[in-house]
């Protein structure tokens, strides 16, 4: 008993400062890419789209674009693009619409994350969001990095976000994985059990587009063929900061950031 109380004192208060302060991210972290198509010749552009393991890069010149919904953040394009694609440390990568996951030269300048407008989600879930997570063919990394938001390091409960056991208690389902054929039925049933209006969050490249598994006949290439997500969180897997930032933006929550 005394040991437990003592432990509480020794271990201290350890919840991170994000989102009240900018997130602490590692030096080599890859965040939202910045595209400058003018730096890539047609030859380099075609090399880029050919070498991208996720087939996320297309176009050339000012039309060069990178689809964050497919990107696995391996950073290979950065090495050969002569500055045409550089990964920034921007963690606000989540998008509310699929189109906003496309990074190109135009939207790389002065990027500001898409703001949630007043809608059913903010009205119903602006203060509390109950999530039922469904893993559908994922490699467990997205699941694990979503799960850490429950630990005291992130404590997403303080924003009213909670993981619930039954879809009947949930406002939304958060899907990870490319939706394996063997999970499609269970995913559909889980979604059907969520009371209306049931929202959908696609977490990770696999859930958004199938990622590198898009072409496997054993998967459905992500959730988009089954539902239209209300939030897309790119990454492979997304860093917990990216997930939390996306969830808060979905709920229409705003935080004044103090300087770290």
């Amino acid at each position: 008993m005394f040991n437990i109380l003592k432990a509480r004192l020794v271990q201290g208060y350890r919840t991170g400062k994000f989102p009240h302060q900018p997130p602490v991210l590692p030096e080599r972290f890859l965040g939202r890419p910045v595209i400058d198509g003018s730096k890539c010749s047609a030859e380099i552009s075609s090399q880029l789209s050919e070498m991208c393991p996720a087939d996320a890069i297309s176009g050339c010149g000012n039309d060069l674009q990178l689809d964050l919904g497919k990107c696995i953040f391996c950073g290979k394009c950065q090495e050969i693009s002569c500055g045409g694609i550089t990964f920034s440390k921007e963690h606000a990568v989540a998008a509310l619409t699929r189109e906003n996951l496309i990074c190109n030269t135009a939207n790389s300048r002065n990027y500001t994350p898409e703001e949630q407008v007043r809608c059913a989600i903010t009205r119903l879930c602006g203060k509390s969001l109950k999530i039922r997570e469904v893993s559908a063919g994922g490699c467990a990394a997205c699941e694990l990095d979503f799960n850490v938001l429950n630990t005291l390091a992130w404590d997403m409960g303080r924003f009213g976000i909670q993981v619930v056991a039954s879809p009947r208690h949930a406002d939304c389902i958060l899907v990870t994985g490319p939706v394996s054929e063997n999970m499609a039925l269970a995913l559909q049933k889980s979604f059907d059990a969520v009371p209306d209006p049931a929202f959908v969050i696609a977490c990770g490249a696999c859930a958004i587009s199938g990622g590198i598994y898009a072409e496997s006949p054993e998967t459905r290439g992500g959730v988009c063929g089954m539902f239209t997500p209300d939030l897309y969180i790119p990454g492979c897997p997304p860093h917990p900061t990216m997930i939390l930032e996306g969830l808060l933006r979905l709920m229409g929550k705003r935080f004044l950031q103090k300087k770290a």
Partner: peptide, 16 residues
């Protein structure tokens, strides 16, 4: 339930 067909997709590799 998590079957994605990895072994089948590895055939003919290695690729990107």
């Amino acid at each position: 339930y998590q079957h994605r067909g990895i072994e089948k997709m590895l055939l003919g590799g290695p690729d990107k």
